[in-house]
Nucleic acid binder design. Structure first.
Lengths: 196, 196
DNA sequence: AGTAAAAACTAATAAATGTTAGTTTTGCTG
DNA sequence: CAGCAAAACTAACATTTATTAGTTTTTACT
């Protein structure tokens, strides 16, 4: 019968994962049934199990793909850094682009990770905590170098990461504002504030 | 048998709502069963229905309680405003305090609203959109008055609201940083930036 | 064309879900 | 202390859930 049609670059598993990300974003992980996912893929539910091991395995794939992308970028950003300000700006811009270009998956990683099963849940949190710590270290470096104000570094990281995450509300307004204005304004706001 | 013990100010319904907020935050709305909620309350599941109409009614109560609190504050803030900067600062501080003092409920309103049923879902979104619009108008006023930079007002509101929402990650660090430092640093960051 | 593997299908299962019905217990008020 | 309403209980329900078993179809390769 009808088979899952993998695109040029996407395996069938990839198709499932991508459709799952869209559904998990829209309805949440727990409220998305395998039957719904199957329908979105164009197949009966049990057929999915020829390609995936379980529902929660899909969530794992999404969450760690996103987490690894951020970790990987930070690796290279640390190597090519010229100063703290520039490095922070690059990271913010990367976050914004990830939000805009991989919306579903980033959203799911941000919101549905709590449904991961052990040991993946713990691993995910450890990885995220490690990422935060590296950003905090960056803030501390910048403070010592007098590039940044002497704010609490954790609060600063929290503020920045959270602001960027908020782009999940962005979708409705895509037409009104270009993503370049969005990116530049947000970077400027987070680095220099909004008061004239 | 054992009865739900309402505290001095809390009706039994309030107790249920409060326990539900804690569970909805921890596990998500869909993954929280009425049996779990009943256990947290200290009762069998069907007994809950002596006090509430349905599971989703609990979610409604939480979401609109939070939404109304924000709307109400904005009403008074608009009346007592001296200038745009001061008003924005007050609003940011109110958001931060709401996050810190009503953590579970604000978290649930922020994350689980999509499980509201119609017409509550639409009403909630309309109310939230109205709130955002009033904040955008505030930004525009401040820009015209040369108090704020000429950033895109929607992006600025998005940045601020999202940053504050991020306090949901705050819990772990309560011991290390006082909530006063947190509040002041975040306000300062969002208004004046982080670069020295 | 024939064959073997991959992947679809149907049918089924055990567990969990929100909720209702009907009954008993509790606690206040007269 | 009698009686009544409030609120607890047990039992049960119809659905929905993720997943397995077993079978048939499709695909790819010789």
């Amino acid at each position: 019968m009808a088979k899952i049609k993998p695109g040029k670059n996407a395996s069938k598993k990839d198709v499932i994962t991508q459709k799952a990300a869209a559904l998990f974003k829209k309805k949440g992980y727990s409220s998305t049934s395998m039957r719904e996912l199957a329908e979105a893929v164009g197949v009966e539910a049990p057929s999915l199990y020829n390609h995936i091991g379980s529902k929660s395995e899909i969530l794992q794939a999404i969450c760690f793909k996103v987490a690894n992308a951020f970790t990987l970028y930070l690796d290279t950003a640390e190597k090519t850094a010229v100063n703290a300000v520039k490095m922070l700006e690059n990271i913010i811009r990367f976050h914004i682009r990830m939000m805009l270009n991989n919306f579903n998956e980033v959203y799911v990683a941000n919101h549905e990770w709590k449904h991961l099963k052990e040991p993946y849940l713990s691993n995910f949190l450890i990885q995220r905590r490690g990422y935060e710590k590296r950003l905090i270290a960056l803030m501390e470096t910048g403070i010592l170098a007098k590039e940044f104000k002497n704010n609490n570094p954790y609060v600063a990281v929290l503020t920045i990461l959270s602001a960027v995450r908020g782009l999940e509300f962005w979708q409705q307004h895509k037409k009104n504002i270009s993503s370049q204005v969005l990116e530049d304004d947000m970077v400027n706001h987070l680095l220099n504030g909004i008061i004239k």
